[in-house]
Simulated assay, not measured.
Amino acid sequence: MLKILRFLFAIITISFALYGMLSDDFSYAPLMLLFMGGAMLVMGIEEYKNNKKVLASLLVAVCVFTFYTSFEILLR
């Protein structure tokens, strides 16, 4: 289940990134960051289940920072 969710978040993130690069329209960048944060969170959960707690905590910290950045941009 987590692999599917991670794959889905990654595909959505790549789609938003490609759209922004090809059209020079970066209005969807906050959504891209939001989905990238979701992918990082899922990866952190997977690493926590594999008993790699240092890497898991780093991924969750990156996720929190990415979510904060995304919400900060969205609320402007």
Rank of each mutant, 00 (worst) to 15 (best):
A61T: 11
G20M: 09
M32R: 06
G44F: 04
E46N: 03
L5A: 15
L59G: 03
M1H: 06
L18I: 15
I73A: 00
L75G: 03
T13N: 09
G20Q: 11
T69G: 01
S70I: 03
R6D: 12
G38S: 15
F16R: 08
Y19P: 04
S70W: 02
M43C: 11
K52V: 14
L34M: 13
I11T: 06
E72Q: 01
K52F: 10
L5I: 15
I4P: 00
M1I: 07
I12H: 11
M1R: 05
A56T: 12
Y28R: 08
L58P: 08
F26E: 02
L74F: 15
L33I: 05
F7I: 11
I4E: 06
E47Y: 15
A39V: 14
A61K: 02
A29S: 14
L59M: 10
L34A: 13
L41E: 10
S27P: 08
A10G: 09
L18D: 05
K52H: 14
I12W: 05
M1C: 05
M40G: 01
S23F: 00
D25K: 00
M40K: 00
M1S: 02
L2V: 08
E72C: 01
L59A: 06
L55E: 11
G37H: 06
L58H: 05
G38Y: 11
Y48R: 10
L18M: 14
L31M: 11
A61F: 12
F9M: 09
M36V: 09
S27Y: 13
I4C: 01
E46D: 05
S70Y: 02
L2Q: 11
I11F: 09
V60W: 08
I11E: 04
A17R: 07
M32I: 02
L8C: 13
V54M: 09
F26G: 03
L58G: 09
K53G: 00
L34G: 10
L58W: 05
K49P: 02
E46M: 12
T13K: 10
F35V: 09
I11K: 04
V60K: 02
A10Q: 13
T66V: 12
Y19W: 07
D25I: 04
P30Q: 00
L22R: 00
R76W: 10
V60D: 06
